[in-house]
C-alpha cells in the first residue's frame, strides 16, 4: 500500500468518526422528532384541501404536488440538467443510424422477456398515469418504462429492435415531443389568462389569490389535478425516450477501431 493510499485511508477514518460523533452526541445532534416541522404542516394542509381553494394545489399525493406544483421551476431545470447529460453522451459517442441485427439470446430468454417486458411496461404506464393519486409520478413511471426497453435491448439485440421501430431518430422525436408538451403545459394558464385580460404566473395550476384563473381539478368527480396529470404523462414519455436514446448510443455508438 502506497503512502498516498494510506493517507486517504486515515483521513476517511477521521472523517467518519468525527462526523458520526458530531451528528449523534456532538454539536449537530439529530433526534427523531415526534411532531412535524411548520413547513411540512403547511404543505400537508394545502396539498388537497377544498376548504382553502385559493392556496391548495388540489393534488392528493403530497410529493408529486411539491415536485410539479410548489417547486415546479426546480423540477423544470432538473429536466434541463437531465437532457444536457444525455445530449453530452450522444455528442461523445456519436449517433447510431444503422446497426447489424445480431442473434440475441436463446429462445427461452426471448420468450420470457416478451412476457416480463410487457408486464413492466404496463406497470410503468400505471405508475405514471396514477401519479397524482397514488405513490408514483413522471420520473418513476419513465424509469420503469426505460427498464422494460433496456431489457428488450439486451435480449433481442439492438439491430433487431431497430428494424421493429426503436430507432435513434424515433427516440429523438419522442423525447422532443415530451419536452415541447411540458413547455406548452407550463404556459397553458398564462396563455389562457392573456385572452381573459389578466396575467397569470408561469407554472400556475390552480387559481391563486389575485389571479382568479386556473385549471379545473376534477371532471365528473374524477380527480386529475389540473396540469399535474399532463406533466406526469409527458415527463414519463420524455424520460423513457431519453434513456432508450442513451442505451442505443451506449450499445451501438463509438468507433472501436479508433484505438491506437
Amino acid at each position: 500500500m502506497s503512502a498516498y493510499r494510506a493517507l486517504i485511508l486515515v483521513s476517511m477514518v477521521v472523517f467518519a468518526l468525527a462526523l458520526s460523533y458530531a451528528l449523534t452526541y456532538g454539536i449537530l445532534r439529530l433526534e427523531v422528532p415526534l411532531t412535524l416541522r411548520d413547513l411540512a404542516k403547511l404543505y400537508i394542509s394545502t396539498t388537497f384541501n377544498p376548504l382553502k381553494r385559493e392556496l391548495s394545489a388540489m393534488t392528493p399525493e403530497g410529493v408529486t404536488a411539491i415536485v410539479w406544483d410548489y417547486r415546479g421551476t426546480d423540477t423544470f431545470f432538473e429536466i434541463v440538467v437531465f437532457y444536457g447529460a444525455i445530449i453530452g453522451s450522444v455528442a461523445l459517442l456519436g449517433a447510431v443510424y444503422r446497426y447489424p441485427p445480431g442473434p440475441g439470446l436463446s429462445l427461452i430468454a426471448k420468450t420470457v422477456t416478451r412476457i416480463v417486458a410487457t408486464m413492466i411496461l404496463v406497470v410503468g404506464a400505471a405508475i405514471a398515469l396514477h401519479g397524482h393519486l397514488t405513490p408514483g409520478g413522471g420520473f418513476q413511471g419513465g424509469a420503469t418504462l426505460a427498464v422494460s426497453i433496456t431489457i428488450a435491448l439486451v435480449t433481442f439485440s439492438l439491430g433487431a429492435l431497430m428494424l421493429r421501430g426503436l430507432t435513434y431518430g424515433g427516440m429523438v422525436a419522442l423525447r422532443s415531443l415530451g419536452l415541447i408538451g411540458i413547455v406548452l403545459t407550463v404556459f397553458m394558464v398564462v396563455i389562457a389568462s392573456l385572452t381573459a385580460g389578466i396575467t397569470a404566473y408561469v407554472f400556475q395550476n390552480q387559481p391563486k389569490p389575485g389571479v382568479p384563473i386556473g385549471m379545473a381539478y376534477s371532471v365528473d368527480g374524477i380527480v386529475f389535478s389540473g396540469t399535474v396529470w399532463f406533466l406526469n404523462v409527458l415527463d414519463a414519455i420524455a424520460v423513457a425516450a431519453g434513456f432508450a436514446l442513451l442505451f442505443i448510443v451506449l450499445i451501438g455508438g463509438g468507433v472501436e477501431g479508433e484505438r491506437e
Partner: peptide, 23 residues
Amino acid sequence: PLPQALVLTAIVISLAVLAFLAA
C-alpha cells in the same frame, strides 16, 4: 414530504450524471 421530493430529483440527476461519466 419535502425531503422526499428533493431526493426524487436528486436520484434522477445522479443517474444522468452517471450516464454522462460512463460515456
